[in-house]
């Protein structure tokens, strides 16, 4: 098995949460994503053994959902929304500037494995359009200038944990909601930050 004991222990904990083993395949794939930055065939083999279905069945699920990456991602996954609200609020400009700064086309990763860029469909932040996600941590009301600043900041400081609230304060604008609870935890990998998966951490 290519997973270490710590990860396996966590996987077994997750499996126990479900009445049927195979139901755990979704979170386990997130776990695989957090480990390698993509869903490797090795991880698929591990998951198939853990939940008792064939490898190709796991592969089938992992290739169906776009959040499970089939190619290795950089340290930071930059997702810029291109759906209607954001588009009306000039997200194409954001996309252009981010692409210009990173030098990446859609779904590309740079050579240093720092950034992966993608233009995505609605990420549920229409009220705060245009919206951007870094490792699925959402920042709203991002101007094209601030988007570039955000990228610069990531490139210079290379934070281990990216926190939505922190980025919102420094690079964001209008938010969809302003009554949300303050949350100082953020994502540690290109998998979304879930407590049960331990892919999230409080930034000190």
């Amino acid at each position: 098995m290519s997973w270490d004991d710590k990860l396996l222990k966590q996987a077994k904990k997750i499996i126990k949460l479900y009445p049927q083993k195979r139901s755990a395949i979704g979170p386990l794939l997130h776990l695989a994503q957090s480990k390698d930055g993509y869903i490797s065939d090795d991880s698929i083999a591990v998951i198939s053994e853990l939940v008792g279905i064939t490898e190709v069945q796991v592969k089938s699920v992992s290739t169906f959902y776009s959040m499970y990456k089939q190619e290795p991602t950089g340290k930071y996954l930059l997702s810029v929304c291109k759906s209607i609200s954001c588009e009306i609020n000039n997200s194409s400009e954001v996309i252009n500037k981010v692409q210009e700064f990173t030098g990446l086309n859609n779904n590309e990763t740079d050579e240093e494995k720092l950034f992966t860029f993608e233009a995505v469909e609605c990420i549920g932040a229409c009220g705060g359009a245009p919206a951007v996600q870094v490792n699925y941590e959402t920042v709203e009301g991002v101007t094209s200038e601030n988007a570039v600043n955000l990228c610069k900041w990531l490139k210079e400081t290379k934070p281990e944990v990216v926190v939505a609230d922190e980025m919102q304060e420094n690079f964001g604008g209008i938010k969809s909601f302003d009554w949300a609870i303050q949350d100082s935890s953020g994502a540690t990998s290109t998998a979304p930050g879930f407590q049960t998966l331990k892919t999230t951490k409080v930034k000190k």
Binding site: D41, T54, E55, V56, Q57, S60, T63, F64
Partner: peptide
């Protein structure tokens, strides 16, 4: 009972295939 072929990918890209080396 030996599901060694499955749909891979989604939408327009969907194809039937096996797992690599399986």
């Amino acid at each position: 009972g030996d599901p060694l072929i499955e749909f891979i990918q989604r939408g327009n890209k969907t194809e039937v295939n096996t797992f690599p080396n399986e």
